[in-house]
Amino acid sequence: MAKIRFIEHTGEEHEVEAQAGGSVMLAALTNGVPGIDADCGGACSCATCHVYVQEDWLDKVGEISPTEEAMLSLSTDRQDNSRLSCQIEITDELDGLVVTTPEFQF
């Protein structure tokens, strides 16, 4: 189990408890967290589950694959801490993870 905090661009916060094994994207969707569209359903092929990972957690959320990098690079809102949340697998080590959702998914 891991607690994950989603912060919307407006500052509104949502804390959810998620099972290890699923993705951060799924944790948002199953708990009704707004701001994540996930049009492709988790196939790393649309970039509409884009999140910004809080700096302290960047080295714990795993590497960006070339496919994820390619999709992210087309986003107009790309930042250094951008990730596709369908590509972050939840582990017990991610307990306390904080991510911010962008104003738009695109």
Partner: peptide, 18 residues
């Protein structure tokens, strides 16, 4: 409803979808 193929997926996904 958003999980459809009309915009394609991957690098060539429709740019004007929104």
């Amino acid at each position: 409803a958003r999980q459809h193929l009309s915009f394609g997926f991957g690098l060539h996904r429709c740019m004007g979808n929104r």
